[in-house]
Nucleic acid binder design. Structure first.
Ligand code: SF4
Ligand code: SF4
Lengths: 156, 156
DNA sequence: TTCAAACAGGACCAAATCGGTCCTGAATCG
DNA sequence: CGATTCAGGACCGATTTGGTCCTGTTTGAA
């Protein structure tokens, strides 16, 4: 039950591109250095992102990566699923499965519900939202404002 | 991003106890057979459940497991966390971490939000709810009614 | 035209996690 | 006592995670 490092690094990386401004071409090397992400690993991650069309790559001298869309058009769900594949809480929710309980299993519905919730959260938060929510450097970073604000009770 | 088999089997197993009626002592062997769960594996899972106080175990002839509380008092979150440990979407959300981004990371807030959502879904659904939602044997098992009904838009 | 910069892609790898199995031991009942 | 049932730990193979590295290919500039 975790977002993998790859997924997290992907969002962090794209966020870096977004902060550098629209259409700016930035090298893997800079993103890696500034965001403290292993370069080779980040390179692989950006490959997925490029294949998913979230980012455009240019080779050669002055090459690098640039966002393919507006930051407000890229949701964290796009990013995470481009890297990790579709979010699925259980095998029955991602492919027609041969699970022995499939007929009338009460759990499917529950897992589907949970899954929908997290996809919702991720799909309504864009890179632009994350940029805005960037807190200075201290204070609990707990106050994130997605486009459609949810109650989100404080204590878990 | 999946609930493990162990977690799933745990809920399924307890659900079986719940269906057998209050206080009923049932052997691992029966649960395993009826729910199609590998016996040795299920035994390990029930050990966690017993340690967490969700279930009481009795050894010897006529021994087995019985729910330690009412089905309506046991949430799926209890069960899953008893088995898998606390649900945490990222390392920063489960322990004071040495993540280089910790100061003012915009992602923490997002992950926390997603995590809260799934804990909410799981914590408001009890074994009793799951029993009620058991569909006959066909029809999409998508209609689960938790205690506090959520809008839950149909298409994802 | 050549060369160095920069990404593309695949092979590879260690470590952790998952999904179990198995064996010994202790409790309990008859 | 002895059969039964759980407790707990050791172990195991497969998969996933989190990377590294090496060989291209593309591109711009000298
Ligand atoms: S047990 Fe139920 S929830 Fe789990 S995979 Fe099978 S059908 Fe889906
Ligand atoms: S990068 Fe941010 S979200 Fe991820 S672990 Fe570090 S602080 Fe938490």
């Amino acid at each position: 039950m975790q977002v993998t490092r790859a997924g997290e690094y992907g969002v962090l990386g794209l966020l870096h591109l977004a902060r550098r401004g629209a259409g700016q071409v930035v090298m893997i090397d800079e993103v890696s250095r500034e965001e403290r992400i292993p370069k080779s690993f980040l390179a692989k991650i950006f490959q997925s992102l490029a294949r998913a069309g979230l980012v455009r790559s240019n080779r050669g001298i002055g090459g690098g990566f640039a966002l393919a869309k507006e930051p407000a058009e890229i949701t964290t769900l796009d990013v995470i699923e481009a890297i990790e594949g579709p979010i699925a809480f259980q095998r029955c929710l991602e492919a027609p499965t041969e699970c022995p309980h499939t007929g009338g299993c009460p759990l499917c519905g529950l897992f589907e519900q949970a899954q929908t919730q997290v996809r919702d959260v991720f799909s309504r938060t864009t890179l632009a939202d994350l940029m805005k929510s960037r807190v200075p450097a201290a204070a609990p970073a707990t106050s994130l404002k997605p486009r459609a604000p949810t109650p989100a009770r404080a204590a878990v």
